[in-house]
Design a binder for these strands. Structure first.
Lengths: 144, 144
DNA sequence: CTACATGCAAATCCTTTGCATCCAC
DNA sequence: GTGGATGCAAAGGATTTGCATGTAG
């Protein structure tokens, strides 16, 4: 489990500047955990009476992403979402037809990761992927 | 190898309406093959003295995508590109740091495709993927 | 003939930028 | 004190929409 304290300490050790706004965004990310959009982060904070500009949220999330703290995922119709890396590691299968989102265990990525490391000397950052295709129901329907 | 004729015939058999504009977009996609953006398609056509509105290009590409004729890929910094599926099948590794793009043989996707089909009854449409991470040079640099 | 596709202009959505002010270290 | 972060307003870019007109089947 990952806590805000843990992340803050890690960043401080790296000599990063910890502002109130950065802590606020991290708070929400750790509380909510899943699939937070920029707008969603702002809403959550507003409900707690803590206001942040969208601009700042974009900048903080970008900053966290560059430091490997959060992942950024484009879920297609559901937009772009952010998530603390390591907090409930998983991925998604998204149906192009009915837009159903199926959750995918991280384990399925291991073989591909290993292959990319070994054969391409590439260090993948596949922390929250979205794969598109057709779910079983829509496959059957399409082939009728 | 896939030709415009072949695609047009396939669509006609499905009862799709074949307009001049749709043929024009298909022409460019089959001629150029690789990584065509909406803007790029428009430019290519303009050079041949054949003008199309961006709106129409968006609509045609969307239409082709829904019918499984073209793939749509977000390459990150390099934007969104389209490509005829089956025409030089490949994928990309993209460095988050230096933005280098490494080409990836389609073969590496087979195991994951098989797993998604078998364990999730999901028919993946992974025809032109982009995976992000760090290339060897940037890994070494980052760890200094 | 008719339903569907296109062109144009305008709207919309998401994200970034410039610049003055503020604050963490 | 000072460099970097924030807030605000405005710009930017990509994509979508409404509606009149055109055209494939």
């Amino acid at each position: 489990m990952i806590s805000v304290e843990e992340i803050v300490n890690r960043l401080r050790e790296q000599g990063e500047r910890l502002t109130l706004q950065r802590r606020m965004v991290l708070d929400v990310l750790c509380q909510e955990g899943d699939h937070l959009s920029v707008h969603h982060v702002q809403q959550q904070l507003a409900e707690q009476g803590r206001d942040l500009t969208e601009t700042t949220i974009y900048r903080v999330l970008q900053w966290l992403k560059e430091r490997g703290i959060v992942s950024q995922t484009d879920l297609g119709q559901s937009g772009v979402v952010y998530q603390v890396i390591g907090l409930r590691l998983h991925h998604h299968l998204i149906c192009l037809n009915c837009h159903q989102e199926i959750e995918l265990d991280d384990q399925v990525m291991e073989a591909l990761r290993a292959l990319l490391r070994r054969d391409y000397h590439f260090e993948p950052r596949m922390d929250h992927m979205a794969f598109f295709g057709l779910c079983q129901v829509c496959q059957d329907y399409h082939s009728e």
